[in-house]
Design a binder for these strands. Structure first.
Lengths: 257, 257
DNA sequence: TAATATTCCGTTAATTTGACGGAATAAAAA
DNA sequence: TTTTTATTCCGTCAAATTAACGGAATATTA
C-alpha cells in the first residue's frame, strides 16, 4: 500500500456508513458447475466474497449493484438479498488484525482502525452469465477470479458459510423464480438447463420429467436452430418466453423439482 | 422527556452500533385474525414496529431477541430474518426531525442527533402465542399494543411496508416450516389451525383437504380430549408431534396449500 | 460400417389434488 | 321434549400430476 493509497483509505471512511456493509455472492455457471467470483485482498492471505461499504448517498441495493459492476463490468444484474450477518465475533479471524497486516504489508495500521469494527453485512447473491463477466479486482485486492463452488480456497471470516447460505436460499427461490434466465446464455439447450438445475439443487433430475415440467408451463420457446456439440446428436436450442417467465413470478405458483 | 432521560439517551448511543439497527414484526394470532405488536414512541404521533439498536457486544439475533423479550416478556421466541432495509431516504418522514420533535416534547434536540442518521435495519419477524404476551412499552414509548393486521394505525417510515414484506415472507416460509407451533397454544383444534392458515395465506382452504394434508404428513397428534366451544359439537384437540415437525424442515419437502 | 455418446420422445402405474355431500354433535330456542 | 342452528368431521370419486422406465434417432470418431 502506497502512502497516497493509505490516505484515501482513511478519507474514504467518511463517505461510508459505519458498522454495516454489503457482501455479494456472485454466481456464474460454466463447465457444468456453479462458480463463485472471489477476491483476494492484499492485506490478508485469504479470499473473500465480493463486498464493500455503503455510501451515505445510496441504498443497500445500489451499493451491492455498484460493487457488482466494479467486479464484473456488468450493469443491471439480477441481485437478491438472502440474509444479513452480524455478530461481534464475526471479525475474529487470526489473520485479520493490525499486527499481522503490518507484518505482511510493512505498513503501520492502527489497531482500532474502523475496518476492524463490528460490521453487520447484508448478504446478496447475484446471478450472472459466466461468459459475459470480466473479473476485475478492486483497489485493495491483488486478485479476483472464479472458483468452483466445490473447491473453494481458504476464506476469511464466515465467508464460506455465507456462500452455503446463499446457495441454500437460491435452491429455495428456484421454486418461485425461473433462475435460468440470468445464468444461461440467451440461447441454450435442454441438457444445459437440465444440468444447471441439477447443480443448483444438488441432486439428479430425470431428464424426461424435467423437460416436460418446463415445457408444459410454457416458459421455453423451442427454436428451429440446433447447437453443434461435436460427436453427438445436435440438441435444439431454446430461449425463454420473457412474458410468461415474468408472469410466473406473480401468480405465486411453485415449481417443485 | 426529563433531563436525566435525555442524558441517558445520549450516553447510550456509545454502546450501540451506528447506522444499523433491528426491526421486528411481532405477530400473534387471536380472534381468528393475525395481530402485530406495535409501539408508539412519544416523540412522534405515529406507530412503529418494535425495534431497537444493536449493542456492540451482541449479535443481530441477540439484539432482536432482547428487544422482543422487553416487549413481550417471553424468552426463546421463534424469530426469523426476512429482509434488510436501507436507503438514505428511508428516514424522510415529515414528522420525524428535530424541529417537530422539539415542538411536541418541548425539548431541545440537535438536528444532527444520531437518531436521524441513515439506518440500515435488519428485519425479523417473530411468531408468538398471543395469550402469553404481556405487551410492555419501552422507555421512550407511551404505548405498546396489538393491532389487527388489516386495521393498522398511521405508521412511521416504511413500517407498514415492512409488515407487508414480513407477511409475504411468512406465507412463503409456511411451505417449508409448519408455522402453527409458534402461533397456536399447545393444544388446539383442527378448525383453529385451519383458520390460522387461511389468514396467513389470505385465501380460503377446503377444510377436508386441508386436514387431510396435515394428517397424512403426520405432524399432528390427535388427543382424546375435546374442547368445549359452547353451542356446538366439541372439536377434538390436537398437538404437534415435535419430532416429525422438526424433521419436516430438513428433508426440504414442501407443503403447498 | 460399426461403435459411442448424447438427445429426445412416450407410456403406464401410483399418488396427489380438487371438488363435493351429508351424518354427527352440542347447546339454545321453541 | 323436540326442533333449530351452528359447527365438526369423515369419505368418495374424477382429474391431474408425478415417478419410474426403455428405446429410437442422431452426429461424430474409430
Amino acid at each position: 500500500m502506497k502512502q497516497t493509497e493509505q490516505q484515501e483509505f482513511y478519507m474514504d471512511a467518511e463517505q461510508f456508513l459505519k458498522n454495516v456493509a454489503v457482501d455479494n455472492v456472485i454466481l456464474g455457471y460454466h463447465d457444468k458447475e456453479l462458480k463463485v467470483l472471489l477476491q483476494k485482498p492484499f492485506i490478508v492471505n485469504k479470499w473473500t466474497i465480493t463486498g464493500g461499504h455503503i455510501r451515505k448517498t445510496e441504498s443497500i441495493e445500489e451499493a451491492a449493484s455498484r460493487i457488482a459492476l466494479e467486479r464484473t463490468g456488468l450493469k443491471d444484474l439480477f441481485l437478491e438479498q438472502f440474509r444479513s450477518f452480524g455478530s461481534p465475533n464475526r471479525a475474529k479471524d487470526e489473520t485479520f488484525n493490525a499486527k499481522s497486516i503490518t507484518e505482511k504489508t510493512g505498513f503501520e495500521i492502527p489497531p482500532d482502525l474502523w475496518i476492524f469494527d463490528y460490521f453487520v453485512t447484508v448478504g446478496f447473491y447475484t446471478l450472472t452469465e459466466f461468459s459475459k463477466v470480466a473479473p476485475t479486482k478492486g483497489a485493495y485486492d491483488d486478485d479476483c477470479q472464479w472458483w468452483p463452488i466445490n473447491e473453494l480456497p481458504p476464506m476469511l471470516f464466515n465467508h464460506e458459510n455465507m456462500i452455503q447460505e446463499a446457495l441454500k436460499a437460491l435452491s429455495v427461490n428456484i421454486a418461485h423464480h425461473p433462475i435460468g434466465y440470468e445464468l444461461l446464455p440467451e440461447k441454450f439447450t435442454l441438457p444445459q438447463i437440465h444440468a444447471l438445475y441439477e447443480s443448483i439443487l444438488g441432486k439428479s433430475l430425470d431428464d424426461r420429467n424435467f423437460s416436460r415440467k418446463l415445457l408444459v408451463n410454457g416458459i421455453l420457446i423451442k427454436l428451429k436452430e440446433t447447437k453443434k456439440i461435436g460427436a453427438h446428436r445436435s440438441p435444439f436450442l431454446y430461449t425463454f418466453d420473457k412474458e410468461k417467465y415474468d408472469l410466473g413470478l406473480q401468480n405465486g405458483d411453485v415449481l417443485v423439482f
